[in-house]
C-alpha cells in the first residue's frame, strides 16, 4: 500500500512537470472590424508620447480660401483613418456623417462641403484591399457665405456593413472652413508664446502683406525652429517700420489691442 502511494506521487509529479510549462499565448484581435481616425503620420502612433501629446494633434483643422486665387472654388483637406482587425483582400467602404455642433455655424452639405453621401464622392471613402489606413479627403466648397464668417464641419465615422466604430475619442474630426483669415493649427500655444504672439486676423493679414507669404497651415507647419525665429524678427522689424511711419497710431488688432510680436 505504501509503495502504491509513493508510485502515485511520482506519477503525479511527472504529470505536473509535463503540463506546468506552456508557451505564452498570442492575443489576436478577436473583436469585429472597427475603424477610427488617427494621426496623419502613421509613425506617430508608435511614439512613446503619442497618447500624451500627439493623440489630438490632427483632430481639428482650419482651412481658408482667403489666400487662394479667386478661381479656386474647390479644395480638399485630409485626415487619416485606420482600421482595426484583419486586413482584408477586398475593398471596404466606410461611412462618414456630419454631426451638428451647438452654438456654432455648422457647415451646410453641398454648399460648404461636398456631402459625404454625394454620388461624386462615393469612391472617396473606401479602404482599399490590403490596406489598413488611408487619407480621408474632405472636399470644401467656396461659397460666398464663407467670406463673412467661418463654418464648422464636424463629422464622425459611423458603423456600416464593414466596420463598427472605433474608440469614442477617435471617431470624429472637425474642419473650420472660411474665406477669411483663420488661425492655422500650427499657430498653437507654443508658436504663440515663442514666435507670433496672440492671434488676430489683423496681425495675420499684416504678416501676409509684408512678407508676401501665405501663412496658412501648410506653410506654417513646415517652418523650422530657427526659421520661425528668423521670421519673428523680420515681422518685428516690419511692425516697427509701420509704427514708426504711423506715429501715435500704432497697429492694433480687431480687438483694439496693440499688435506685438514676442
Amino acid at each position: 500500500m505504501k509503495m502504491k502511494v509513493i508510485q502515485n506521487i511520482f506519477l503525479l509529479g511527472v504529470l505536473c512537470s509535463l503540463f506546468s510549462c506552456k508557451e505564452a499565448e498570442f492575443m489576436p484581435y478577436k473583436d469585429v472590424d472597427r475603424i477610427q481616425f488617427g494621426p496623419m503620420d502613421p509613425a506617430k502612433i508608435y511614439w512613446s508620447d503619442y497618447e500624451k501629446i500627439w493623440k489630438l494633434s490632427d483632430t481639428a483643422k482650419a482651412y481658408s480660401f482667403y489666400t487662394e486665387e479667386a478661381t479656386k472654388l474647390v479644395d480638399t483637406v485630409y485626415f487619416r483613418i485606420y482600421t482595426l482587425g484583419k486586413v482584408q483582400n477586398y475593398d471596404r467602404a466606410f461611412k462618414l456623417m456630419q454631426s451638428l455642433v451647438k452654438d456654432v455655424d455648422n457647415a451646410v452639405p453641398n454648399k460648404h462641403y461636398q456631402a459625404f453621401d454625394d454620388s461624386k464622392g462615393e469612391q472617396l471613402y473606401v479602404v482599399k484591399a490590403g490596406q489598413s489606413y488611408m487619407r480621408v479627403p474632405v472636399v470644401l466648397l467656396r461659397d460666398a457665405s464663407l467670406k463673412s464668417k467661418p463654418y464648422t464641419l464636424q463629422f464622425e465615422v459611423v458603423a456600416n456593413e464593414h466596420f463598427q466604430q472605433g474608440a469614442p475619442t477617435n471617431t470624429w474630426r472637425r474642419v473650420l472652413v472660411g474665406d477669411l483669415l483663420l488661425q492655422p493649427a500650427a499657430w498653437d500655444d507654443y508658436a504663440t508664446k515663442y514666435f507670433w504672439g496672440k492671434y488676430s486676423r489683423v496681425k495675420h493679414e499684416f504678416m501676409i502683406e509684408v512678407t508676401g507669404l501665405k501663412w496658412d497651415q501648410e506653410m506654417m507647419s513646415k517652418l523650422e525652429f530657427d526659421q520661425s525665429k528668423h521670421f519673428g524678427t523680420e515681422l518685428k522689424k516690419e511692425l516697427a517700420l509701420y509704427n514708426n511711419a504711423h506715429l501715435g497710431e500704432p497697429k492694433v488688432d480687431e480687438f483694439g489691442d496693440l499688435i506685438v510680436f514676442p
Binding site: E224, F225, D226, Q227, K229, T233, K237
Partner: peptide, 20 residues
C-alpha cells in the same frame, strides 16, 4: 545669430530696440 535646433542658417539681424 543661430540658437536652438537649427540647420546652420543665420537669422535676421537683431534690432537695437523695439522701434528698430
Amino acid at each position: 545669430g543661430i540658437s536652438g535646433p537649427n540647420s546652420g542658417f543665420f537669422g535676421s539681424s537683431s534690432m537695437r530696440d523695439d522701434s528698430n
